Simulated assay, not measured.
Amino acid sequence: MSRLTHRQLYLQRLGYDTSPPPTLHTLQDLQLRHVCAFTFESLSTLLHLPVPIDLPSVEQKVLLDGRGGYCYELNQMFLALLQELGFDARGITGRVVMGGPADAHTARTHRLSLVTLDGVRYITDVGFGGMVPSSPLQLDTEVVQATAHEPYRLTFDGQGSYTLWAQVAGEWRGLYVFDLQVQTDIDYTIGNWYVSTHPESPFVGQLKVARLATGKRHTLANANYAVHYLDRPSEKHALGSADELMALLQDTFGIRLPAHAQLRKTLDGLVKAGT
């Protein structure tokens, strides 16, 4: 399948019949549609499978095989689309601090993108799991920025590093720290190798899944499923069987499950570990 056909298929999945112009409205619309249409998921690392991040492999997996992916896949594909549409965009990387102190110096394992429109810089990210922003965020301001979901804000330390924060249940939580260093393929390869193979990676042997919808976020951590609403408390429950888990992955998250001999056994192990 040609690159042009891939782009057309991608845009079709996002609800476009023709290529939209490279404007801020388009960027906002693309990001929101993407996080609601494509699922963040780590089935490959759960099964200890390789995660190739060259663009043809990512497009095959996500657009043709019915899968999702994580930041090195989803933000890679999204950036390629933005560039094809004429956006001034490039990839950057960051350090995840979610769940810990915002000033922690963690590994550089997250990929996102920098977009410049009419001299104004934005970050755009479609690959940050359950707390992915649903709108691009203006970079050079520290004001609170509304999205279709939670409010976000960015802070700058004056020395080149930015921190992304999200307001959850009235509390500001640091998500990741990033800078604007130019990145090349080898930088992404190294980060992806760590995330997909290192024994201390939070993705290896673990299932992390997320997809947004209007007014809510669906998340799955191993066998623990939650729906997080904007206007009422979250609903959470542990899944009771591998069949229930597989049905959720297919029906709620829209994933075409890989034909892997160990998938059911692995999912059954997640369920048993959570009981």
Rank of each mutant, 00 (worst) to 15 (best):
Ser2Phe: 04
Leu4Val: 07
His6Ala: 07
Leu9Cys: 09
Gln12Thr: 14
Arg13Met: 06
Asp17Gly: 12
Thr18Lys: 08
Pro20Leu: 03
His25Pro: 06
Leu27Val: 02
Leu43Asp: 01
Ser44Gly: 12
Ser44Ala: 14
Ser44Asp: 15
Thr45Ile: 11
Leu46Arg: 04
Leu47Val: 07
His48Lys: 09
Leu49Ala: 14
Pro50Val: 15
Pro52Glu: 07
Pro56Gly: 03
Gln60Val: 01
Val62Trp: 00
Leu64Arg: 15
Gly69Gln: 06
Tyr70Lys: 09
Cys71Ile: 14
Leu74Asp: 01
Asn75Arg: 10
Gln76Phe: 09
Leu81His: 03
Gln83Lys: 15
Gln83Tyr: 01
Glu84Trp: 03
Leu85Ser: 03
Gly86Val: 10
Gly86Glu: 03
Ala89Leu: 05
Arg95Asn: 12
Val97Gln: 00
Arg108Trp: 04
Ser113Gly: 11
Gly119Phe: 02
Arg121Ser: 10
Thr124Asn: 13
Phe128Gln: 02
Gly129Phe: 15
Val132Ser: 07
Pro136Asp: 13
Gln138Tyr: 09
Gln138Ser: 13
Thr141Pro: 09
Gln145Ala: 12
Gln145Val: 07
Pro151His: 12
Leu154Asn: 13
Phe156Ile: 09
Gly158Trp: 04
Gln159Met: 09
Tyr162Ile: 05
Trp172Gly: 03
Arg173Pro: 03
Val177His: 00
Val182Asp: 00
Gln183Arg: 10
Gln183Cys: 14
Thr189Ile: 07
Thr189Ala: 08
Asn192Ile: 04
Pro199Asn: 11
Pro199His: 08
Pro199Lys: 05
Val204Arg: 08
Arg211Leu: 12
Arg211His: 10
Ala213Pro: 01
Ala213His: 02
Thr214His: 14
Thr214Gly: 11
Ala221Thr: 13
Ala226Ser: 11
Asp231Arg: 08
Arg232Gln: 11
Arg232Cys: 12
Pro233Val: 11
Pro233Cys: 13
Ser234Asn: 09
Lys236His: 14
Ala238Ile: 08
Leu239Phe: 09
Gly240Val: 07
Leu245Trp: 02
Asp251Gly: 05
Leu257Pro: 01
Ala259Tyr: 03
Gln262Asp: 11
Leu267Phe: 02
Val271Pro: 04
